[in-house]
């Protein structure tokens, strides 16, 4: 893989995420490309570097609200650390594995955020959220992330 190619890929994901979410205001209608960028990078870089990426991307996302910075960074960071650990368990990166990995990672990140940040939701609504919307968002991210990675490999070669 050409040096810097992955960084460009991550930058494109971040740009498209902000373009769709902040620029167009699509919200949940657009996939969470920040989580995809962090989770895919976690399979290719050391934990410290990925958590730094998660910190920065989390700041970008949180800066659009009024709550303290850090919530999204922590949730993405935890998913990133688990992602780097997953490399020791599963070596390959077939489409099915990538999809399952992104699905699980995105759900863990969402669950962490939902539990960590006070949002005024009653307990029943938190469970309903985790078992419906978070699962759908995770599925959406998994499909979008797998397609994005496939596109990257199409350009950079199958070993990328």
């Amino acid at each position: 893989m050409r040096p810097g190619a992955w960084a460009v890929f991550v930058a494109i994901l971040v740009f498209v995420h902000l373009f769709l979410h902040a620029g167009f205001g699509l919200g949940g209608s657009a996939p969470d490309l920040l989580a995809i960028a962090v989770l895919l990078t976690a399979r290719r870089a050391p934990a410290a570097r990925v958590t730094l990426l998660a910190l920065f991307l989390g700041f970008l996302d949180d800066a659009l609200g009024v709550r303290n910075l850090g919530a999204r960074s922590v949730s993405l960071g935890i998913a990133a650390v688990l992602g780097t650990w997953s490399k020791r368990v599963v070596e390959g990166e077939g489409p099915l594995f990538v999809m399952a990995y992104l699905f699980a990672g995105k759900w863990v990140a969402d669950a962490t955020l939902l539990v960590m940040v006070p949002n005024g939701l009653p307990a029943g609504a938190v469970v309903a959220n985790l078992s419906t919307w978070s699962l759908l968002a995770a599925l959406y991210a998994a499909v979008a992330g797998t397609m994005a990675l496939a596109g990257f490999r199409l350009v950079m070669g199958p070993d990328a």
Binding site: A48, T51, L55, N68, G70, V74, I78, V81
Partner: peptide, 19 residues
């Protein structure tokens, strides 16, 4: 060392959240 650095970054984000 890598894991310790990662945890430090997470703790920094957590302190910022609670601060």
């Amino acid at each position: 060392r890598d894991l310790a650095l990662a945890i430090s970054v997470l703790l920094f984000a957590f302190f910022l959240l609670l601060g």
